[in-house]
Nucleic acid binder design. Structure first.
Length: 195
DNA sequence: TACGTGATCACG
DNA sequence: GTGATCACGTAA
Protein backbone atom coordinates (compact mmCIF):
# COMPACT_ATOMS: atom_id res chain seq x y z
CA UNK A 1 0.00 0.00 0.00
CA UNK A 2 1.26 3.46 -0.97
CA UNK A 3 2.18 5.64 1.98
CA UNK A 4 -0.20 8.59 2.13
CA UNK A 5 0.46 12.27 2.70
CA UNK A 6 -0.46 11.95 6.39
CA UNK A 7 2.54 9.64 6.92
CA UNK A 8 4.91 12.38 5.81
CA UNK A 9 3.12 15.32 7.40
CA UNK A 10 3.89 14.14 10.93
CA UNK A 11 6.12 16.28 13.09
CA UNK A 12 8.91 13.99 14.19
CA UNK A 13 11.38 13.50 11.36
CA UNK A 14 13.51 11.12 13.44
CA UNK A 15 10.55 8.79 13.98
CA UNK A 16 9.72 8.91 10.29
CA UNK A 17 13.32 8.05 9.38
CA UNK A 18 13.15 5.04 11.68
CA UNK A 19 9.79 3.93 10.29
CA UNK A 20 10.93 4.14 6.69
CA UNK A 21 13.21 1.14 7.24
CA UNK A 22 11.59 -1.89 5.64
CA UNK A 23 9.39 0.18 3.33
CA UNK A 24 9.81 -0.04 -0.44
CA UNK A 25 10.92 2.82 -2.68
CA UNK A 26 9.57 2.42 -6.20
CA UNK A 27 10.09 4.29 -9.47
CA UNK A 28 8.25 3.75 -12.72
CA UNK A 29 9.77 5.34 -15.81
CA UNK A 30 8.06 4.75 -19.14
CA UNK A 31 6.39 1.70 -17.70
CA UNK A 32 9.64 0.22 -16.39
CA UNK A 33 9.50 -0.42 -12.68
CA UNK A 34 12.46 -0.59 -10.32
CA UNK A 35 12.19 -0.89 -6.56
CA UNK A 36 14.15 -1.56 -3.42
CA UNK A 37 13.54 -2.04 0.27
CA UNK A 38 14.84 0.88 2.32
CA UNK A 39 17.64 -0.35 4.60
CA UNK A 40 19.35 2.90 5.63
CA UNK A 41 18.07 6.41 6.33
CA UNK A 42 19.11 9.66 8.00
CA UNK A 43 16.99 12.44 9.50
CA UNK A 44 17.69 16.15 8.92
CA UNK A 45 16.05 19.12 10.61
CA UNK A 46 16.36 22.91 10.32
CA UNK A 47 17.23 22.85 14.05
CA UNK A 48 20.67 21.35 13.56
CA UNK A 49 23.83 22.21 11.65
CA UNK A 50 23.90 19.14 9.46
CA UNK A 51 20.85 20.33 7.58
CA UNK A 52 20.88 22.41 4.40
CA UNK A 53 18.02 24.41 5.94
CA UNK A 54 19.81 25.00 9.25
CA UNK A 55 18.29 27.87 11.19
CA UNK A 56 15.63 28.32 8.54
CA UNK A 57 18.07 29.15 5.77
CA UNK A 58 16.12 28.96 2.54
CA UNK A 59 17.88 28.89 -0.81
CA UNK A 60 16.97 27.97 -4.35
CA UNK A 61 18.38 24.49 -3.83
CA UNK A 62 16.58 23.57 -0.62
CA UNK A 63 13.36 25.52 -1.16
CA UNK A 64 11.33 22.32 -1.46
CA UNK A 65 12.20 21.38 2.12
CA UNK A 66 9.94 24.22 3.22
CA UNK A 67 7.00 22.75 1.33
CA UNK A 68 4.48 20.26 2.72
CA UNK A 69 5.81 16.80 3.56
CA UNK A 70 5.66 14.00 1.00
CA UNK A 71 7.74 15.53 -1.76
CA UNK A 72 11.12 14.55 -3.12
CA UNK A 73 14.11 16.75 -2.38
CA UNK A 74 16.78 15.80 -4.89
CA UNK A 75 20.07 17.64 -5.24
CA UNK A 76 23.47 17.17 -6.84
CA UNK A 77 26.26 16.28 -4.46
CA UNK A 78 29.99 16.60 -5.19
CA UNK A 79 29.19 17.48 -8.78
CA UNK A 80 28.17 13.96 -9.74
CA UNK A 81 25.71 12.21 -7.43
CA UNK A 82 22.03 12.87 -7.00
CA UNK A 83 20.78 12.36 -3.45
CA UNK A 84 17.14 11.57 -2.76
CA UNK A 85 15.33 12.86 0.32
CA UNK A 86 11.74 12.67 1.49
CA UNK A 87 10.44 15.99 2.80
CA UNK A 88 8.48 15.69 6.06
CA UNK A 89 6.39 17.86 8.41
CA UNK A 90 4.14 20.71 7.29
CA UNK A 91 5.07 23.70 5.21
CA UNK A 92 7.67 26.13 6.54
CA UNK A 93 9.15 23.51 8.89
CA UNK A 94 12.11 22.26 6.92
CA UNK A 95 12.80 18.60 7.65
CA UNK A 96 13.67 15.61 5.47
CA UNK A 97 14.84 12.02 5.47
CA UNK A 98 17.78 11.06 3.28
CA UNK A 99 17.38 7.60 1.78
CA UNK A 100 20.91 6.18 1.99
CA UNK A 101 20.53 2.60 0.78
CA UNK A 102 18.00 0.09 -0.50
CA UNK A 103 18.00 -3.64 -1.13
CA UNK A 104 17.11 -4.30 -4.79
CA UNK A 105 13.73 -5.97 -5.41
CA UNK A 106 12.12 -5.38 -8.80
CA UNK A 107 13.88 -4.47 -12.04
CA UNK A 108 17.36 -5.66 -11.14
CA UNK A 109 18.31 -6.05 -14.82
CA UNK A 110 17.46 -2.44 -15.52
CA UNK A 111 19.36 -1.30 -12.44
CA UNK A 112 22.43 -3.15 -13.66
CA UNK A 113 22.01 -1.48 -17.03
CA UNK A 114 21.98 1.93 -15.39
CA UNK A 115 24.83 1.25 -12.96
CA UNK A 116 27.08 -1.03 -14.97
CA UNK A 117 27.92 -4.66 -14.45
CA UNK A 118 28.89 -4.70 -10.79
CA UNK A 119 28.28 -7.08 -7.91
CA UNK A 120 24.66 -7.15 -6.74
CA UNK A 121 25.47 -5.97 -3.25
CA UNK A 122 27.06 -2.79 -4.62
CA UNK A 123 24.14 -1.87 -6.85
CA UNK A 124 22.22 0.33 -4.40
CA UNK A 125 24.41 0.41 -1.27
CA UNK A 126 24.76 4.18 -0.99
CA UNK A 127 22.75 7.36 -1.51
CA UNK A 128 24.30 8.22 -4.88
CA UNK A 129 24.21 4.64 -6.11
CA UNK A 130 20.54 4.06 -5.44
CA UNK A 131 19.38 7.18 -7.28
CA UNK A 132 21.40 6.10 -10.30
CA UNK A 133 19.97 2.58 -10.15
CA UNK A 134 16.39 3.84 -9.77
CA UNK A 135 16.73 6.48 -12.49
CA UNK A 136 16.30 9.49 -10.19
CA UNK A 137 17.89 12.80 -11.12
CA UNK A 138 17.59 16.51 -10.36
CA UNK A 139 14.46 16.88 -12.49
CA UNK A 140 12.61 14.82 -9.87
CA UNK A 141 13.04 17.50 -7.25
CA UNK A 142 9.63 18.52 -5.92
CA UNK A 143 7.67 15.51 -7.17
CA UNK A 144 4.99 14.33 -4.76
CA UNK A 145 5.28 10.75 -3.54
CA UNK A 146 1.72 9.73 -4.31
CA UNK A 147 1.94 9.95 -8.10
CA UNK A 148 2.70 7.10 -10.50
CA UNK A 149 6.38 7.83 -11.07
CA UNK A 150 7.87 7.59 -7.60
CA UNK A 151 6.35 6.49 -4.32
CA UNK A 152 6.96 4.47 -1.17
CA UNK A 153 4.98 1.39 -0.19
CA UNK A 154 4.34 -0.29 3.11
CA UNK A 155 4.76 -4.02 2.57
CA UNK A 156 3.80 -4.78 6.12
CA UNK A 157 7.25 -5.89 7.06
CA UNK A 158 7.98 -4.50 10.50
CA UNK A 159 11.64 -4.07 11.34
CA UNK A 160 11.94 -5.11 15.00
CA UNK A 161 14.00 -2.80 17.18
CA UNK A 162 16.52 -5.61 17.67
CA UNK A 163 17.29 -5.32 13.94
CA UNK A 164 17.40 -1.54 13.87
CA UNK A 165 20.86 -0.08 14.25
CA UNK A 166 21.15 3.54 15.36
CA UNK A 167 24.28 5.59 14.74
CA UNK A 168 25.54 9.03 13.89
CA UNK A 169 25.12 10.42 10.41
CA UNK A 170 27.74 10.06 7.69
CA UNK A 171 29.73 12.76 5.96
CA UNK A 172 28.68 15.85 7.91
CA UNK A 173 31.80 16.67 9.93
CA UNK A 174 31.13 20.33 9.24
CA UNK A 175 28.11 20.11 11.59
CA UNK A 176 30.20 20.19 14.76
CA UNK A 177 28.46 18.60 17.75
CA UNK A 178 25.32 17.97 15.71
CA UNK A 179 27.29 15.44 13.67
CA UNK A 180 26.99 13.16 16.71
CA UNK A 181 23.18 13.07 16.81
CA UNK A 182 21.99 9.44 16.62
CA UNK A 183 19.84 10.10 13.59
CA UNK A 184 21.03 7.38 11.22
CA UNK A 185 19.04 4.18 11.03
CA UNK A 186 19.90 0.94 9.28
CA UNK A 187 18.89 -2.69 9.22
CA UNK A 188 21.49 -4.64 11.14
CA UNK A 189 23.50 -7.03 9.01
CA UNK A 190 21.83 -6.11 5.73
CA UNK A 191 24.28 -6.41 2.83
CA UNK A 192 23.18 -3.15 1.21
CA UNK A 193 23.85 -0.81 4.11
CA UNK A 194 26.56 1.65 3.00
CA UNK A 195 30.09 1.21 4.32
C1' DT B 1 43.88 7.94 1.31
C1' DA B 2 43.14 10.80 -2.76
C1' DC B 3 40.57 12.98 -6.10
C1' DG B 4 37.01 13.79 -9.79
C1' DT B 5 33.39 17.07 -10.56
C1' DG B 6 30.20 21.06 -11.06
C1' DA B 7 26.29 23.31 -8.75
C1' DT B 8 25.73 26.20 -4.98
C1' DC B 9 26.35 29.79 -1.67
C1' DA B 10 28.16 33.80 0.62
C1' DC B 11 30.90 37.42 -0.28
C1' DG B 12 31.40 41.72 -2.41
C1' DG C 1 31.83 37.70 -10.71
C1' DT C 2 34.59 34.41 -7.87
C1' DG C 3 36.32 30.85 -4.94
C1' DA C 4 35.63 27.52 -1.25
C1' DT C 5 32.78 23.99 -0.19
C1' DC C 6 30.27 19.64 -0.48
C1' DA C 7 24.47 14.70 3.18
C1' DC C 8 29.69 10.56 -2.46
C1' DG C 9 31.92 6.74 -5.12
C1' DT C 10 35.82 4.59 -6.94
C1' DA C 11 40.34 3.10 -7.42
C1' DA C 12 44.62 2.16 -4.89
Amino acid sequence: MKLEPAFYHRKNVVTIARQLLGKVLITSIKGKVTSGMIVETEAYSWKERGCHAYNGRKTQRNEIMFDDGGRAYVYLCYGMHYLFNVVTNTSDIAEAVLIRAVEPLEGVDLMIKRRGDIPLHQLTSGPGKLTRALGIDRSWNGKVLWNDEVWIEDIDRKVPSRQCEVSKRIGIDYAGADANLPWRFSIRGNKWVSK
